[in-house]
Design a protein around this nucleic acid. Structure first.
Lengths: 111, 111
DNA sequence: TGCTCGTTTGCGTCATTGTGCAAGTATACG
DNA sequence: CGTATACTTGCACAATGACGCAAACGAGCA
């Protein structure tokens, strides 16, 4: 009798990991944008964020939209500008939940 | 005076987030493979893992190689078969480190 | 040595994605 | 109104990635 039927049953492990979330972080420019935004500790406009990316402003705008749609950023318009900020709670919670689920499946050897 | 110069300085925040790591998790089939492997709690062969993916065996092999190259899986040959297992420590550590770094940049509102 | 099984790799195809440019939208200001 | 500023979206194109099939590779076995 194998261990297959005795698999751990974390709360919806599979659904915990959304491709869109990770796809958003699979591009160097998007990571740079997120890091820049996190390090600034305050909402930043698109033009401001363009400083960390050697690409066209329209590309930055699109990258930010991807991060926003994936739930990593939040967008808020103030006047003519749109300020993006990091969805800290969501990111931290998501990462920790996955870490916990993985750990629950591989409890031994936690050296 | 802005907060820009007072950005948090987590240990190599930018390098903490590797595109390759997240790119590996950006595909549904690869996530399915990882989840299946984690739930089984033991090394599985390529043919075995093919059960959770409706794609050709060669595609599964390639997906596993991507996960291995990203440091998410480990491969070990035993006879004719190759057994893949989850690199739990590495995954858990990576996710928690990123979570900590993000949290450090957004300390307030940690409701 | 041949043969088989399990896995990987080469190749062609098709879909997706990142990019720049140009045009469009939204808001403020005169 | 019209204009300027900030951003988004349409379009075309190049690069990347997922996929299946067939061939190659590697380990065991007769």
């Amino acid at each position: 009798m194998t261990q297959t039927s005795k698999c751990c049953r974390p709360p919806a492990f599979a659904r915990l990991i959304e491709p869109r979330f990770f796809k958003a972080l699979s591009d160097p420019n998007r990571i740079a944008l997120l890091v820049r935004l996190a390090r600034c500790r305050r909402p930043c406009s698109v033009s401001e964020l363009n400083a960390c990316c050697p690409v066209d402003l329209s590309v930055v705008s699109r990258h930010l939209a991807v991060l926003r749609d994936a739930g990593l950023l939040e967008a808020r318009r103030r006047g003519k500008e749109v300020f993006y900020s990091v969805q800290c709670d969501r990111i931290v919670t998501t990462l920790r939940r996955i870490a916990d689920a993985v750990e629950a499946c591989c409890p031994r050897g936690r050296k």
